[in-house]
Amino acid sequence: MKAVRIFLKIIYVAMPLTIVMAFLWAPPAALLGDASRILYFHVPIAWVSFLAFVVSGILSILHLSGVKKQNGGLDEKAYHSAAIGFTFTIMTVITGSIWARISWGTFWNWDPRETSIVIILLIYIAYFSLQGALTDNEKRGRIGSTYLILAMVTLPFFVFLVPRLYPSLHPDPIINADKKIYLDDHMKLTLIVGILSFSILYCYLFDLMNRILVIRKKIEEYRETSN
């Protein structure tokens, strides 16, 4: 675990590297110009939000299936992952809107992908409201985990299916019908480095939140035993 934590510290180098690569090393896109550089942040952020939601769903499955871990419930870890995913989804909307303003002239177009992300946001807002409304820890864990699994099931539909079913202003998805990535080699490498960096950032944040959870649990245990 210590080795993993040391590895996660690579983020302090990886993120500046991504920024420098995105602005200086990667060439601008043919028609979009320098504005296209937002791609190296928008796509990785969107990827991390998807990853975080999937992790929260998997942790919820593990929680409901009875797998127990020392120090801290899996339902709470799932909550943390969903919280990170939610934050990154908002960041995806912000970066996407800026890009839309530059490319299409308006911040919001109700494009299928934009509509999908709004629905995903609403689904997870409902989850946080639900978590806030329930006071009993066990009940909250069970109901919240069930909800997160259902939310995860809807994700492929909104992320992969809807943008392919309806005509979209967005460029071809990276995983397209030809199964090819239409990007310059430098751009491709920068995008990969960006995706890796943001994934490490997600792992780092998730680890920090879980460590705080463990400390909180220990304090609670200590209070209970001292009383």
Partner: peptide, 13 residues
């Protein structure tokens, strides 16, 4: 402008 934007992003990071 590109250098400026990069600098601001780097400082935020």
């Amino acid at each position: 402008v590109l250098y400026q934007v990069m600098a601001v992003v780097l400082v935020i990071w």
